[in-house]
Nucleic acid binder design. Sequence first.
DNA 1: TCCTCATTCAAAGAATGACTTGAATACTCG
DNA 2: CGAGTATTCAAGTCATTCTTTGAATGAGGA
Lengths: 227, 227
Amino acid sequence: MGDRAAKDALFDGFADIAKALANGRRAELIDVLAQGERHVEELADEIDQSVANTSFHLRTLAGAGVVVTRRDKNRIYYRLASDRVIDLWTALRDVAAAHHAELDDLAAAYLGHRDQFDEVSRTELAARIAAGDVVVVDVRPATEFASGHISGARSIPVERLTRELRDLPADVEVVAYCRGPFCLLADEAVRLLRRKGRAARRLEDGFPEWRYASLPVESLSVQEVMS
Amino acid sequence: MGDRAAKDALFDGFADIAKALANGRRAELIDVLAQGERHVEELADEIDQSVANTSFHLRTLAGAGVVVTRRDKNRIYYRLASDRVIDLWTALRDVAAAHHAELDDLAAAYLGHRDQFDEVSRTELAARIAAGDVVVVDVRPATEFASGHISGARSIPVERLTRELRDLPADVEVVAYCRGPFCLLADEAVRLLRRKGRAARRLEDGFPEWRYASLPVESLSVQEVMS
DNA sequence: TCCTCATTCAAAGAATGACTTGAATACTCG
DNA sequence: CGAGTATTCAAGTCATTCTTTGAATGAGGA
């Protein structure tokens, strides 16, 4: 006990967790899975890889204990092993954003210009939901809304936004949110709403961060999803 | 903007940070650097590697922006780029401990049996320091004590403990602490003290976690170190 | 200026990782 | 039980990573 070989083995164990995240495609998988569980084909589609390769990466993640599976009918659903993994992913993103100089450029290239001061903070949104002077719109795909969303939010996937615009009250500000800080759906929604003359801003980060901050969430029952 | 190539590049950027930690020796380096800054030779010694290889790993870490350097005379000192890196390292350890099944075995092999319920929590220790009914002993090497320690703690490196035992009051409990949950110094100190009939326990985790929790710390001025 | 010492660089070999293709499991439902 | 699907496995190729050895750099002090 306490010898060099044992210490090396222990720290190799820590490094194994880092290795699990040490690939861009696996990082994308974690980011998607932070939204909720998915099956392999959905995940392959999200990260634009072959099903075989996605399965390979998922096995790597599962081997490190970062994701776990559940079988339903003949589908296998993957999800993050616990909230601590979201912690880890958030910390990783934070360090990346803070210290990796070229990441700013990469983020700008992917996200386009986004004015941080124009985002609504979680605390502000929570207060305004309580006050009732805001419409919260979840612009993620309907299945993600179903598996969990901000309490009181309304589901309008971004591709349906133009059509359902008339149903939104014109005199209150719209706050759109999506998957997280590196998701573009809410940005697109805000741009679209503003072009139509609506007051609109995006929520900082996205749904996983909201849930992780222990702010009110709700999810649809199976019946509601079916209807 | 918003295309697949840009998204891949962004997430590859996140993965680069994970890659920096995805090696056992680099993980050990981070763990040591969480204590405070060190120069290459010290670090090589801590992780039992050649100076060249240590330098190589440090360059990898620096390239990812996880550590930064400072020159003093003809030594180059490395330190973590910010507290967020400690966050990341802590989250990584937590996920590893929670989900990587074999890690329990590895930790047990390295740490030996350690009774978690026998550790003093940070909040308990903070309260008892305020009440004054405890002696806090920092059993890390003196240089680490000098660069930062729990307020009111006394420095007794573990190899000097037997000699300085008589200076410790016999009627109050001793709480020993060291570098963190995977450091053995405090365990050794507690074993030794108990063999001598003293009431002794170890603090949960170690100094970096205490400091990170914004609990009171102090460090020695250059004059004090010299004396 | 020259010497010394801490640190980094360069080259090279073994090991590991990523992604593709095509075949093999394993499950569900008729 | 057998057909149909979702997922995983296996093999192969190409690229990257780790570690060692020995030499080079570059700052400080004589």
